[in-house]
Design a protein around this nucleic acid. Structure first.
Lengths: 204, 204
DNA sequence: ACCTGAACACCGTTCAAGT
DNA sequence: ACCTGAACACCGTTCAAGT
């Protein structure tokens, strides 16, 4: 937080402009959100001309894609912390809550990761890879929950369903669709998980 | 499709510029997506100066908010078509699939409705009202599914959980996170619903 | 009351030029 | 190899002026 604004550089060249831009972009993202982040603004704050940025990222979308890829990596990290219980419901719950907390703590980054600014399909390979990695971690969790192989159909479908649910609730919270004091977030996830199980139990 | 491009107007004034702009914006939205829609572009296509638009919508966000509100109204319509079965699982399934189909058929509108361009909380009242209406319809469905009053806690939590799930899966599809031939979409929703019930059954 | 043109402060991106 | 300034084609928004 202190050495970050060593603005005046002695030399013409910089060296690690890639990471400087990426780090600053992450800050700007958190401050103004994904729709108002601008290449020129980020470049300015780093103390470099906007055109310099184009020597490190071929365009704005590529910069954003790198940011999003970083987000998926962090999400992976978060999903790897396992529950100390071996009860299926507890394992699932732990995963859901970890995911949910990540989204809540990085709302703008999360919006970017799943927002319209990023068309992952036609973006850099790193993004798709990072996203696939995160989905892999999710499958791993569901594999433990269901006690079936990670590449089985059951696990795949279960992972997709769980991802949908958790992404959905995180997304609704971030977009202020749900109004709860933030201290009771997790309780709501809990209640929803139970409510959902209630519904399905009854439907069986 | 024919009388829409009656561009050259005889008089200086127009009359129903509000709806003309809104309709054209909807088309542009479907063509270029929520991030690339521009006020100037829409005004141009209607055949009017960009400044004229400001006499009908105080800024771009208000225009987008009206579009999103329209989306929520249409979503409400769609959710009101009830299942002919009275089996709880069937009612839920019918609602989920109707919601899902709406999202798939209007991907850019759906992205707008839940995207970062719209901060519903600080936008026009119509938007919040339309969204609340749609959520009301969802609660109604869950009330039928669970056979409990629509304002009960069970129904509220269940509606939130179901909304999360359905919004989640729709959102993941729209953002190309899931790759399935579009003919098998619904099958996947089905399988996910079942997989989820599977998981919860096991966890109980 | 409703619409326009010119202007301001921003964008993303490119290209020739500087170190 | 890495960075800059000027320029182009766009934005959203405002303001004085036209019908």
């Amino acid at each position: 937080m202190a050495n970050k604004s060593s603005r005046k550089r002695g030399s013409y060249h910089i060296g690690n402009l890639d990471t400087l831009l990426l780090d600053e972009a992450r800050l700007v993202l958190a401050e103004v959100g994904p729709t108002k982040l601008s290449l020129r603004g980020v470049s300015d704050r780093v103390g470099v001309s906007a055109t310099a940025t184009y020597h490190h990222f071929s365009n704005k979308n590529v910069l954003l894609a790198h940011l999003a890829a970083k987000g998926f990596h962090e999400l992976s990290q978060v999903l790897r912390k396992r529950s100390n219980s071996s009860e299926p419901y507890d394992i699932l719950r732990t995963g859901c809550i970890a995911y949910f907390k990540f989204a809540r703590q990085n709302p703008e980054l999360y919006q970017l990761m799943f927002g319209p600014e990023i068309q992952a399909e036609r973006s850099i390979a790193e993004l798709k890879a990072a996203r696939a990695e995160a989905f892999g971690d999710l499958r791993q969790i569901i594999s433990e929950v269901t006690n079936e192989p990670a590449d089985s159909k059951t696990v795949l479908d279960g992972a997709l369903a769980s991802w949908s649910f958790t992404h959905g609730i995180a997304s609704l919270f971030i977009h202020d669709v749900i109004h709860y004091p933030s201290s009771t977030d997790i309780k709501l996830v809990d209640k929803s998980l139970k409510a959902l199980s209630q519904i399905f139990l009854q439907g069986k």
